[in-house]
Amino acid sequence: MKQGKMPRILKKKTERDLERLIALAGQSLTADQRQKIKQHTIDETAGICYRVNLDGNLGVIYAGVKKVSKGYQFQFANYPFYRIVYTLGGSAIIDDYKQQYKCDTGSVYGFVPKESGQIINNSDAPWIHMYIHFTGREALNMYKKTILNSSRVTMLSDPVAIQQIFENIVSESIKHNENSQAICDAYLQILLLKLSSDYIQNPQHLSESKTTYLHCLNYINEHFSTLTNIGEVAEKCSINRAHLCRLFRMHNNISPMAYILKLRLNKAALILIQTDYPIKHISNMLSFKDPYYFSKAFKKIYGISPAIYRKQH
């Protein structure tokens, strides 16, 4: 998607839906602020959970994945929901008007209701992140048990596991079937439990191998749709292919190419739901060598062909 164009998910929502979402979130953005956010949003895929029980124990309001360019700035005040954001690639500055924090790849940050602050991307690289907004009677109690209650931004010791939960929530929030809300809420509970303090490792205690691994992970998360081999990753990260493979086996229990394929197929599933692009076009978008290989790989992971997956969702 070209910079400055309205994200595809927003095209599929009516203006009434957007205003409802803004009102629901208690945002008070000016027209100029909204225009600037749209201008620096390169791509966004999001889902709204309309079945949420605002008076229930724990519920996802909406979730998504977003890519923004340098100059992006989002200010918020008196926000009514809890919010957790995971950085897939690039970095951003979180300012709660008391202190500034840097969000790097593999980190999470959170805000509780009624807090104010701003999020800024002032780096040349795009900031790619997944977000979850939620509420509920048990939300505060569960949030307080996570490391985010004492540390605004935290580097994860196992970012891949957290990333997978985020992906599951985003994917389910987009489906809008009768079970999506319950599934999203269940994944949210797992996410909050995973973010307990004993699951987190302070960034200054990260080993050299973990730091190198996260650097490689950052590059892959930013460029997976165009990568054709792991040699490019190794070269960009100044290591050899064998070392790259060892790092992924050590910290992710998966090969680099298998991880890249997983990201591509997850993205393909979202594109199938969100658009009416032909299968061949999606295959080309994500650098599969041909539509047949794409369909075969997709069926191996999802159990059905891309065409049937689209029809069922």
Rank of each mutant, 00 (worst) to 15 (best):
I120V: 14
K67V: 15
A139R: 08
K311V: 02
T226A: 05
I37N: 04
K145P: 03
D96C: 02
I239M: 10
S238E: 12
S207P: 05
S28H: 06
L18F: 15
E138A: 14
A258N: 01
I279V: 07
T275N: 01
Q100G: 01
K210H: 13
A92F: 05
Q164A: 08
F134S: 07
M155W: 00
L214T: 04
M285W: 05
K236E: 15
A182Y: 06
E232V: 06
Y72I: 15
Y259D: 07
K67P: 11
A25T: 12
I239L: 13
L193P: 05
S305A: 11
Y309M: 02
G64Y: 09
A77S: 05
E115Y: 05
I279D: 02
A23H: 05
L192M: 15
V112E: 13
I254A: 02
T226W: 06
I273N: 06
I301V: 14
T275E: 11
H251Y: 11
M142P: 08
Y109D: 13
L286V: 02
G136L: 13
S157F: 04
P7M: 13
M250D: 07
G106A: 10
N218F: 11
A125H: 12
T45K: 04
N53G: 09
A23D: 14
L261S: 08
L54S: 06
A25N: 12
A125P: 07
D104C: 08
E167F: 09
N229L: 08
L263R: 07
L140I: 12
Y309I: 09
K145N: 10
H40Y: 08
L88T: 03
E232L: 09
S207I: 02
K70V: 03
K210T: 06
Y293H: 03
V108L: 08
F248Q: 03
K296H: 12
I230T: 10
A269P: 00
E172W: 12
H40I: 08
A258D: 01
L192R: 08
I279G: 00
G90K: 05
L270H: 03
L140F: 13
H251N: 07
L265P: 01
A31G: 01
L88F: 06
L21E: 08
Y109A: 07
T41G: 14
T105I: 04
A63S: 15
Y72E: 14
P203L: 04
K311W: 01
H133C: 15
K13E: 03
D104V: 10
L227Y: 03
A63C: 15
V170H: 06
L272E: 03
Q164W: 04
S150N: 14
I183W: 09
Q75W: 12
R16P: 01
Y293G: 00
R20D: 13
Y101H: 11
K11D: 01
Q3L: 15
E19W: 06
I301S: 08
V108Q: 09
K2Q: 13
L21Q: 12
D95W: 04
T228G: 06
D185L: 00
K210Y: 05
K145C: 13
S238N: 09
S196P: 09
S255Q: 01
S209D: 14
N53S: 11
T30A: 00
K194T: 12
S209A: 10
R8M: 03
Y72L: 14
E19P: 00
R20F: 15
